[in-house]
Amino acid sequence: MSFLSFLLGEKKKSASVAKERLQIILAHERGSRSDASPDYLPALQRELVAVISKYVSINPDDIKVNLERQDNLDVLEVKIELPEVSR
């Protein structure tokens, strides 16, 4: 790590930032939610569409976000259907 990057901080990759944000959201919601479906899922889905659209042209209906409870675990399932790349 250079001295300059120590002072200014290093730019994190967007994937690691998104992962950290998801962990924070899920930890917060896990502590304060009831058994009803969480209200943050539609916003999460819109944000995922926005981020993925920066890199790939996708249809917003091709991303599905679902949260299930399995025993003592909350499982966040994200299904993303990417278009085929013609070569």
Rank of each mutant, 00 (worst) to 15 (best):
L44M: 11
S34V: 05
R46M: 12
S37I: 10
R33L: 04
V75N: 11
A43R: 08
L82W: 00
A15W: 13
E47L: 12
E84Q: 14
K12N: 04
L67S: 07
P83F: 02
L73E: 13
I52R: 00
S5Q: 10
K79Y: 13
D39M: 12
G9L: 05
Q45R: 15
N59D: 15
S32Q: 03
Q45C: 12
Y40L: 13
A18T: 15
A15D: 14
D74H: 10
D61C: 04
S2T: 09
L48W: 05
E29V: 07
S16P: 00
E10G: 01
S34L: 11
E10A: 04
G9A: 02
R87G: 06
M1P: 05
V75A: 07
D61F: 08
L76Q: 05
V49F: 11
L7H: 00
Q23S: 11
D62P: 03
S14W: 08
I80W: 01
S16C: 02
S32Y: 05
L8V: 03
S57W: 00
R30E: 14
K19E: 13
A27S: 15
F3T: 11
Y55E: 07
L26R: 12
I63K: 01
D35V: 01
G31Y: 14
M1D: 03
S37Q: 13
N66R: 10
I25E: 13
P42I: 08
R21A: 15
K11A: 04
E20S: 08
L26T: 09
K64D: 12
Y40M: 13
L82A: 03
L76F: 06
E29F: 03
K64I: 13
